[in-house]
């Protein structure tokens, strides 16, 4: 499902115009990205949680050189599905 399909589906569901849906969707993604980058997590009922997690720095052994190195801490997007979403996905 692409963004276009999604817009069409939402427009059909809510009865709003596609342009409005598009504008709202853009605003929503912008807001989400903004908030996520700000360190916030977005929790949506019956859907899941979207957030940026920080992975702590860790030591690892380089496979080819065999040297012990430190991988610096990094940030990662993570999404955890809600039990409702899990059911929806698993019960087709």
């Amino acid at each position: 499902m692409t963004t276009k399909d999604l817009i069409t589906a939402i427009a059909a569901d809510t009865g709003m115009r596609k342009q409005d849906v598009e504008r709202l969707l853009e605003a929503t993604t912008d807001a989400c990205v903004e908030q996520l980058l700000d360190g916030k997590s977005i929790q949506v009922q019956n859907f899941g949680t979207l957030e940026i997690k920080t992975k702590a720095e860790r030591q690892f052994i380089h496979p080819t050189t065999g040297k012990r190195q430190v991988a610096p801490e990094k940030k990662q997007f993570s999404f955890k599905q809600n039990s409702v979403l899990k059911e929806a996905v698993n019960n087709k």
Partner: peptide, 8 residues
């Protein structure tokens, strides 16, 4: 939106 995403 989230309903449709779930559906999709």
């Amino acid at each position: 939106l989230f309903q449709q995403i779930t559906k999709g």
